[in-house]
């Protein structure tokens, strides 16, 4: 047990983690997730896959909203673009999946410039609603370009074969998602400790001060938009593969809200929070289902169809209660628990 947290040099301040325990536990967690596909049934495995894909997507939004402070309701637009940028070359023109993944990142990043440039002058809720408008326009454009996107018919997508490895089976696909999620996590953590990441945080905390320090607001906001769109696009491509079918219908507007909910429930601005928030939000409906089931079969019969609505109500309530009673999110809870564990029975 460490007695304190001493930072004596700049490298130790920006190192990913100076604690062996964090590395070891992190490694164990990744290993456990890598082994999990061999032990879980397909249903539980689908939750693991959803957590990994949703987490990747939420990390994308985290760069924009958590780090740089630009609220976006247009997240789903980038997910959709990523899915199509993968599906069109791969499913329609038979390109190798690797090219598909590349375009799933690059296309949304390029489009994000179109979204980002007009958004540079906007702040707060005006920006949020502009991104919302863009999400609607993107889905309209995708639908109307049916010569390329098959329009409302959608595009069926097969599980990919990458670098000679076939990701057809559920277990293999889970591994692919795990690799992508872990790589994204490291990328985001590393961005945060670089010059760029510190500039993002400066823009978020006080953009005028950041500007006087010589940070080019426009350039960094655009960079945040592009990074976010790139990551979200990859997540969108994975989600499309998971659905085995890419269509505008598969990406409802609710996904934007869900992504924001993840950031908030986890703790805005914290990367660990994104991970915790993803797990909670993805599993919440299932937890609610089990909780309702515990009331006994009579209760379930009584609710019959109403049980499903009750679950949604519960979902909304959890978000409200979190914001009300634990605005720092799950990360805040985690820190409290840690402090209690280290200092108990003392208070500090």
């Amino acid at each position: 047990m460490r007695s304190g947290h001493y930072k004596e040099s700049v490298p130790s301040l920006i190192v990913l983690s100076d604690s062996t325990a964090v590395w070891v536990w992190g490694g164990i967690l990744v290993l456990a997730m890598a082994m999990a596909p061999y032990f879980l049934n397909a249903y539980l495995l689908s939750f693991l896959v959803l957590i990994l894909i949703t987490g990747t997507g939420a990390l994308g939004l985290h760069v924009l909203t958590g780090c740089t402070g630009l609220i976006s309701l247009g997240h789903v637009g980038f997910l959709l673009l990523g899915a199509y940028a993968y599906a069109v070359p791969v499913a329609k023109f038979g390109a190798p999946p690797l090219i598909g993944f590349l375009s799933a990142g690059v296309v949304p990043a390029l489009v994000s410039i179109v979204v980002g440039v007009p958004s540079l002058r906007l702040k707060g809720l005006y920006l949020a609603i502009t991104t919302l408008a863009f999400a609607f326009i993107i889905s309209h454009v995708v639908l109307s370009m049916s010569w390329l996107t098959n329009g409302a018919r959608g595009l069926p997508v097969m599980r990919p074969e990458l670098l000679g490895i076939d990701f057809e089976s559920d277990a293999r696909f889970a591994h692919l998602c795990l690799v992508v999620a872990v790589a994204t996590l490291f990328a985001v953590l590393n961005i945060q400790r670089s010059r760029v990441g510190r500039a993002f945080v400066a823009v978020r905390d006080n953009d005028i001060a950041a500007r006087t320090m010589g940070i080019n607001l426009q350039a960094y906001k655009l960079r945040a938009f592009m990074t976010s769109a790139f990551i979200s696009g990859i997540a969108g491509a994975l989600f499309g593969i998971y659905l085995s079918f890419v269509s505008v219908e598969g990406f409802p507007f609710l996904m934007s809200i869900e992504a924001l909910a993840i950031l908030i429930v986890g703790g805005l601005g914290s990367t660990a929070g994104v991970v915790l928030g993803t797990v909670l939000i993805v599993l919440l409906p299932e937890v609610a289902r089990i909780a309702l089931g515990m009331l006994g079969p009579q209760a379930e019969m009584l609710f019959s169809t109403a049980a499903h609505e009750l679950r949604t109500v519960l979902y909304g309530l959890v978000i409200i209660l979190f914001l009300r009673f634990e605005p720092r999110g799950l990360v805040g809870v985690w820190r409290d628990v840690k402090r209690l564990w280290v200092n108990w029975p003392l208070r500090h």
Partner: peptide, 10 residues
């Protein structure tokens, strides 16, 4: 604002 979004869902 997120609270109002959750309220909308409810």
């Amino acid at each position: 604002v997120m609270v109002t979004i959750a309220l909308a869902v409810i």
